[in-house]
């Protein structure tokens, strides 16, 4: 018989190896894209013969990308902020009150989690045409609000659950009316949850693609839509360069969120000891 300690060691190594392989699978595309982005030739080849930065310059100068980026910022700013307000307020009433149609409204607002984005996109496209709304930013923003709302709702709801009601009771007992309690006690204590909910919503909205493909027009297309169109037409490494910038930017945001908000808590995956 193999002694138990050796057996456990072997098991540990096998586990470690498996995790390393999976992590490699996760980071492989990002690594490959990074290599491709520095390839001097416009045609894909591995390993690249000559290296250069020029595709980064091309990507930054490409008009569709620039416009997509700024459109994306506009859509993201509006939709994540609206979703934060709408979702934050509704999370508050779900947590506190009973009222008619509560679970119906909640169910409807959560359902985009399992409804395919192409269905949502098509729905808003048709609806906009039916009510005579032109295909401007409004439709895109509304569509994004609906798509990111479930995440905001959940994030704020979890923070509200973890907020001890005695703080608000204490404030009320000291003579603070509902509005004052809300602004001086509830909101400040909820701030981390609100910030992470907003961040969540913003990142998701900025990256949303499928529904955006349906509801944006040439004038309002967001960055993912512009990238998709580019990939369909061109094969040069500009897109790889843009992807690298994208990956670095997102990873930095995530690392920032992790350091300041504790992603583990937000995602509800802290080990209970």
């Amino acid at each position: 018989m193999i002694p138990r300690s050796t057996y456990q060691k072997v098991l540990g190594w096998v586990g470690l190896l498996a995790v390393l392989v999976i992590v490699a699978f996760l980071v492989l595309p990002a690594a490959v894209v990074t290599i491709a982005a520095f390839n001097d030739k416009p045609i894909l080849s591995f390993p690249p013969q000559t290296w250069s930065w020029r595709w980064f310059g091309r990507a930054l100068a490409y008009e569709d990308f620039r416009q997509g980026f700024f459109n994306g910022l506009i859509v993201t700013a509006w939709s994540s902020t609206i979703a934060l307000c709408v979702g934050g307020m509704f999370a508050f009433v779900i947590d506190r009150y009973k009222f008619p149609l509560k679970s119906a409204i909640e169910g409807i607002l959560i359902s985009p989690l399992v409804i395919p984005h192409f269905t949502v996109g098509l729905g808003f496209l048709i609806l906009a045409a039916q009510v005579g709304l032109s295909r401007g930013f409004a439709v895109v923003v509304i569509c994004h609000v609906i798509l990111v709302l479930p995440f905001v709702l959940r994030s704020v709801y979890v923070s509200l659950r973890n907020l001890d009601q005695s703080y608000e009771h204490a404030a009320a007992s000291l003579g603070a009316g509902p509005l004052r309690v809300l602004t001086t006690v509830t909101l400040p204590l909820l701030l981390p949850g609100l910030v992470s909910g907003w961040l969540f919503a913003a990142i998701l909205s900025f990256n949303e693609f499928t529904a955006s493909l349906f509801v944006t027009s040439q004038r309002t297309q967001t960055l993912p839509v512009a990238m998709y169109n580019y990939v369909r037409e061109f094969a040069d490494p500009s897109m790889a360069a843009l992807s690298v910038m994208y990956i670095v930017g997102t990873a930095a945001l995530i690392a920032f969120a992790n350091a300041f908000l504790g992603l583990g808590k937000v995602l509800n995956i802290e080990q209970s000891h």
Partner: peptide
């Protein structure tokens, strides 16, 4: 955590493009 979570927020297009290259 960052390695796991970052792709979640990268969006489908960037990740699909990377797989085309792979």
């Amino acid at each position: 955590l960052v390695i796991v979570v970052t792709p979640l927020f990268l969006g489908e297009v960037v990740r699909t493009y990377a797989w085309i290259i792979v």
